[in-house]
Simulated assay, not measured.
Amino acid sequence: MSINWKDFILRSLASIIGITFISFGAALSEAMDMGLDPFTAINRGASSLLGFSLGNYQLGLNLIILVIVFFMKRSLIGWGTIYNMVLVGYQVSFFGNLFGTFFNIEEINLVVRLIITVIAIMIFTLGVALYMDTELGVSPYDAITPLIIDRTDWKYTPVRVGQDLLVVLGAYLLAGPVGISTIITGFFAGPLISFFSQKVSQPIIGKLEKKS
């Protein structure tokens, strides 16, 4: 089967941009001392306890989940899966160090930090929607909800919320950076991803398809 290389490259770029938004939003939230998204928070806690860097630990964990997904529904795996696995942990660390040079938390009042955190969550969920709608595969963590839906016929939003809340609990128990952002993301990531998918990312992908 021939490959439409132009379409593949455009979708890959959109996927990587989406992943970068995810990392940017997560790191910005952490820079405001408001916690991380559930999955990164539990990985931060576990990696700190085990003495690994976030990037190395998250890559290793994703590989384990990837093997499970491969045997249960390998159609969810694609180049976007690889991009996400490799980039997110290291990008979060990169942006975190970058924000550390720009922001002094002690000089930013709580209201401003909350506003920035809300913006960070918006950027994060927009990134998830964008990279998922490229249909180049999803991250191992994001594959869990589709796997459950396939076997239960439940709706995406309640399953995603339940998944995220369980991970929030795990992050708390592992002393990960759980904060307002973690809780908000746990409850609203699903609805926000669906919103951005319908209003932003799907129209963008539709335009890319016409160009290819």
Rank of each mutant, 00 (worst) to 15 (best):
S48N: 08
T157H: 00
L28A: 15
V92K: 02
P158Q: 12
G80Q: 01
M32K: 11
K207Q: 15
D7G: 13
V200Q: 03
L66H: 12
F8W: 05
F8K: 07
M122T: 14
L126Y: 05
L66D: 09
L76A: 07
P140G: 10
S201P: 01
S47E: 04
F94K: 06
S75P: 02
L192S: 09
R151V: 07
I123L: 15
I82P: 06
G170A: 08
G78A: 06
A175G: 08
L59Q: 10
A41F: 00
I123G: 11
I82T: 13
I9S: 13
G25W: 05
I16F: 13
E30Y: 12
V92Y: 04
G127I: 04
S194Q: 09
E135D: 08
V92L: 13
F102Q: 14
M122I: 15
S197Q: 08
V178Q: 00
L87Q: 07
E107L: 15
D7N: 14
G80Y: 00
I183Q: 05
L174S: 08
V159I: 12
P38I: 07
V159D: 01
Y90V: 07
W154M: 14
F196Y: 09
I108Y: 01
I180Q: 00
F24N: 04
I17G: 03
M85I: 15
L192E: 02
